[in-house]
Amino acid sequence: MVRIPVGDLLPADSPRRSGEDMHHVRTLAEVAADLPPILVQKSTMRVIDGMHRLRAAMRANADTVRARMVNCSDGQAFMLAVRSNIGHGLPLTLADRKAAAHRVLLAEPRWSDRSVAALTGLSHKTVGAIRRRSTGEFPQSTERLGRDGRLRSVVPRPVPAPAPPAPVTPTAPVTPMAPVTPPAPVRLPSSPESARHHQHTQLRALMQDPSLRLSENGRALLRLLSTRAVSPGDWKNLLRELPPHCVEAVAGLTAHYAAVWQELTEELKVARVVVN
């Protein structure tokens, strides 16, 4: 175990598709006792396991963090990250585990369903379903590597033939549709204080909506919205102590994130027109 300067570490190739849970980070930052050391890939200085602990150390203004260095390939680092996040800490969501299983199957198509299931915390039936749905993506193999390290022969599944084209039938004349009236624009609060209150009110209402809370994708969306909630006043506080050499990198990232959120906003506008 060694102590590594926080600034020397790179973010993890994490199986968490929605990033870190900032509520969990705040909780860890308040823990008085030393947290377990993080795992770091020695060749790249990329975090394998422990991004929440690293964020907590940064939040506490720590200069260094305890770490264990691991010599491994990038693929091994990802599998170790999955295994570590299944075994302890904040649990991976079902969607995260399925995505991890898909990635492991791409890297190791000869692994048996039970081997991938043991790594990702899924049932072997779920892994088998993922393999069947993505048959065209994985190289076909007549062998499977079991958890005991032994190779066993299997009969490859045949690739289903493409469905014949549907017969062409004459189309009826198209009736012109009535013009769609776009919804009225959303009026945003004028002052920063009212904007903050409006933002928190909307987020709180969404957090209490059962249709979101009771679905896996809904909970993932709520986590994403809650961790990205920010107001102009918050940014002023964050940027006040931003080192000058970090300005260009932060500006590039915020521009990228803004473009992604703008694209999502445009899709939501289209969805709102369809619903209305």
Rank of each mutant, 00 (worst) to 15 (best):
M177N: 06
V47Y: 06
Q262E: 13
E137I: 02
A178E: 12
R55D: 07
H124I: 01
E241M: 02
A271W: 14
R68G: 07
M177Q: 14
V154F: 04
N276A: 15
R133D: 14
P192K: 06
L145C: 01
W261V: 11
G252Y: 05
R110V: 06
N237C: 09
V82D: 10
S231V: 08
Q140M: 05
V2Y: 03
A255H: 14
P170C: 09
Q76N: 01
E266S: 05
S112H: 03
M177W: 08
P170E: 15
A184Q: 13
G146L: 15
S14V: 12
S211L: 10
L203M: 11
D74T: 11
A259M: 10
A33S: 11
A163Y: 08
R144E: 07
T175R: 14
A57G: 10
W111N: 02
M45W: 14
A100H: 05
E241N: 09
C72G: 01
P173K: 09
A67F: 02
R114G: 01
R46S: 12
E267H: 14
A77C: 04
L221S: 07
G218R: 09
E108H: 02
S141H: 02
P36S: 07
L35K: 10
R228Q: 11
P5D: 15
V25W: 03
A271E: 12
P5K: 07
K125V: 11
A271R: 15
P11S: 15
P158L: 13
H256M: 07
P162L: 14
V180A: 12
P182I: 05
R3S: 13
M207N: 11
P165D: 15
S115V: 02
P158H: 10
V274M: 15
